[in-house]
């Protein structure tokens, strides 16, 4: 039942996203944004997702500012299209895709015919991105424990460079170990 609902949501999202992507009229895009917003609130999507909308819009507004800076009159319509399209798509993603979580999303995609190998790769990437984040946090704590306070100085940039270097070295070693472990358990290819 839940799987069927997940599939329905994903298919609805894909269809609506394609439609919004193809739209070019400002009026139609305004309607799309209004409908996406309605869906966002009707499906009781967690409100904290709106923070993501703010971050994304910081980037969108930067692009728009660049456009308007070159030729405001000629690019006004394009800027409006970019803004409306980006926000309509984001709200749609927040409403239909994000609440499911990555695991359910991948399971749904597998159900829709996505190759098992790709699903496994996505799962492993997700798992190791989390691991990398945790490892980086540990190193940052280690630096903080020894009096490191970031400041706009060469010393800070160098320290971050060393932190990233250590993280890369650790990741490579871990990747080798995991590969060995997988090979020992019969993975080929």
């Amino acid at each position: 039942m839940a799987e069927g609902r997940g599939r329905l949501r994903l298919l609805a999202f894909l269809a609506a996203a394609l439609l919004i992507y193809a739209l070019d009229s400002v009026r139609a895009l305004m309607l799309a944004l209004a409908l996406s917003s309605l869906l966002f609130f009707l499906l009781r999507t967690p409100r904290n997702y709106l923070k993501g909308l703010l971050y994304a819009n910081a980037f969108t507004l930067l692009v728009i500012a660049g456009l308007l800076f070159t030729d405001p009159i000629a690019h006004l319509r394009t800027a409006a299209v970019i803004f409306l399209k980006a926000n309509a798509l984001l709200l749609l993603t927040f409403a239909l895709v994000l609440p499911a979580g990555l695991l359910e999303l991948l399971r749904t995609l597998e159900g829709l015919g996505l190759p098992k190998r790709l699903v496994l790769l996505a799962l492993l990437s997700y798992r190791y991105l989390t691991t990398l984040r945790d490892e980086y946090e540990k190193l940052k704590r280690a630096a903080a424990c020894r009096g490191f306070e970031p400041s706009p100085s060469l010393r800070t940039y160098r320290t971050y460079g060393y932190l990233l270097g250590a993280l890369t070295a650790k990741s490579l070693l871990k990747a080798k170990e995991v590969y060995k472990a997988m090979t020992l358990r019969g993975l080929e290819g």
Binding site: E135, K138, L139, A142, A143, C145, Y162, L163, G165, A166, K170
Partner: peptide
């Protein structure tokens, strides 16, 4: 110690 050491 690998969580603590990062300098070259």
């Amino acid at each position: 110690p690998d969580d603590q050491l990062f300098m070259p």
